[in-house]
Design a protein around this nucleic acid. Sequence first.
DNA 1: TAAGCTCGACAACATGGTTGACCATACCGT
DNA 2: ACGGTATGGTCAACCATGTTGTCGAGCTTA
Lengths: 147, 147
Amino acid sequence: MLPLLLFAGFRSLIDELHAELARQGHPDVRPAYGFAMQAIGPDGATASEVGRRLGVSKQAAGKTVDRLTELGYAERIPDETDARRKLVRLTPHGLDALARSAAVFEELRTRWAQALGTDRVRALESDLRTVVPAGAFRLDVPGWFGS
Amino acid sequence: MLPLLLFAGFRSLIDELHAELARQGHPDVRPAYGFAMQAIGPDGATASEVGRRLGVSKQAAGKTVDRLTELGYAERIPDETDARRKLVRLTPHGLDALARSAAVFEELRTRWAQALGTDRVRALESDLRTVVPAGAFRLDVPGWFGS
DNA sequence: TAAGCTCGACAACATGGTTGACCATACCGT
DNA sequence: ACGGTATGGTCAACCATGTTGTCGAGCTTA
């Protein structure tokens, strides 16, 4: 049951995050979009780079960026210094979603700490860090099924 | 980073399971198929029931069963007492995969216990059980993205 | 017995991934 | 300076896996 427990923990955090985001004016951020915005980051990135960070092809990353653009979370800006590249940047709306996500995660962690004690949460994190191989610590959650 | 840590833990277990399964004669069990076989269980179930357990439509469950059947992990058997139903049952090959999965999970847990100590693993499990809402403890891992 | 529900199947479609091909552009070694 | 190579973005075809809607066949129950 260990794997299911870990997944259930992950999942409940993600589900509560998105429920809260929906309440806070971001009803159409789906988990996959959240990860993509995380991959874009506050400084922006090219679609290819996003693909690398998410562990998917640049084409797939491009489609996701299209989606985020339609939804008003991201925009493409031509790179002045390299005519091939287009920088994908989060719009203020996207940055807001990112900031709120961080805040909500913070709050959820606090809630866990109230239930378990701060030290237990810290132990949980440190144990997981110990046992998780460095390579598994990646952002490519979507599309991971289908390996 | 708590969510990512939990996911990384889950993912590393699943990945190692499937690497090991591949080594032990089950190279084409993908995570989604593993969950489906888990949902079928040693006693079998109807496709509709599998769909309910996995949290997907009966049609989607039917397609997955088709896949498992092609791969030789499951078979459909007409129900003698109800001509509408077809019992989906794991073949010996499927049962073997299921048994090996349990064994590998056992072994992975032991490995974690060697790294962290038995008590820490137990604490991890018990803490997660405390903090995870009862509803999140389900088998519908695939298709969960796309909510 | 007739109404209504359930099971399994078929079809049409959405989503999000893949590969392959292609062009424009940048970079680097000669 | 230039030619080969690598990189970035896009188009197209395809695949896997989910969805809804519909349907006939067969149970179940009022």
